[in-house]
Design a protein around this nucleic acid. Structure first.
Length: 284
DNA sequence: AGTGTATCCTGCAGGC
DNA sequence: TGCCTGCAGGATACAC
């Protein structure tokens, strides 16, 4: 899916057009993206005004007037398209929801695979949901020590730890791999085996990667587009993700792909040594 | 607590 | 050209 930088890029686009507009009606084309079911979702969003748009982790949050939010998790292939063209490359291909707005415009939720989810929550429900998520990695209050503390509580591989939204919010497979490369850490290192210096390096690397990806408008890997249909320009800056067999940009060694936790991890076997933990396998 | 596996669904690339 | 397999930015449920 869109990870944090893609969600942030989309939010910035939506914030220019959505606030102030009112949802007149919702056309449900694919109910599988609505865990609450079409009727409750329609009735709870009907005639509500969108007052702001923000982000929490990978989620896009549409604030509704007088409390409550529409929470959008884009899954792998979800897109939020405000006033999309009817034809052409940025026209919706797999619309699942059409929010008809009071000014005659429309907000389309489009999702090829329909792994995404759209929900409406009241203020308490949203507080609870948001509270279950881990800290925002780019929050100024999120310091290296906080990361170290979190890592210390888990034996899980550090890449798995980074992907867990309840431990840290917004990191997906691309940026987890990129951040670990930047910090020269093997993805399979047990989270709690990182010492203070390594946790500091990961903290800095993660924030650097996320910030520059936001600056580049995100990463287009297959089909991500921002709210205006633009591709992300971070793709060309990826150092390891999806670069199996290509030369490490730092040392020239071939980038390797390993699989654990059901997902591919990419690393430079020379720059990212497994480390000294005696319990760790020598997996490359 | 952590891991492997399956599941939701569609599209695309690569091998033959 | 076509068929088949594997893989994909995610999240969750299950058994071990």
């Amino acid at each position: 899916m869109p990870e944090l930088p893609e969600a942030e890029t989309i939010v910035r686009g939506l914030r220019r057009t959505l606030p102030g507009r009112r949802i007149r009606e919702v056309a449900v084309l694919h109910a599988d993206v609505l865990p609450q079911g079409p009727d409750p979702f329609r009735s709870r969003t009907k005639d509500r005004r969108i007052v702001d748009v923000h982000r929490r982790g990978k989620n896009i949050v549409l604030d509704l007037q007088r409390d409550g939010v529409v929470l959008v998790n884009l899954g792998m292939t979800g897109k939020l398209l405000p006033d999309p063209p009817r034809e052409g490359p940025s026209a919706p291909t797999h619309p699942a929801l059409r929010f008809e707005l009071d000014d005659g415009g429309v907000l389309v939720y489009d999702d090829v695979r329909r792994f995404g989810r759209v929900e409406v929550l009241d203020a308490d429900g949203w507080r609870e949901r948001s509270g279950a998520l881990g800290p925002e990695p780019l929050d100024p209050g999120f310091e290296a020590g906080d990361l170290a503390e979190g890592l210390a509580r888990s034996r899980a591989p550090v890449r798995s730890w980074l992907l867990d939204q309840n431990r840290i919010a917004g990191v997906g497979n691309i940026y987890a791999n990129e951040a670990l490369f930047g910090a020269r850490l093997h993805p399979r290192r047990p989270a709690r085996s990182l010492d203070a210096a390594e946790a500091r390096a990961l903290h800095a690397s993660l924030r650097r990667v996320l910030r520059s990806a936001i600056g580049a408008g995100g990463t287009t890997f297959r089909d991500y587009r921002d709210a205006t249909g633009e591709e992300g320009r971070y793709s060309s800056q990826l150092r390891v993700y999806d670069r199996e067999g290509e030369a490490c940009t730092r040392c020239g060694t071939s980038v390797v792909r390993i699989v654990f936790g059901g997902r591919s991890a990419f690393l430079c076997p020379d720059c990212q040594r497994p480390g000294h933990d005696p319990h760790e396998q020598e997996t490359r």
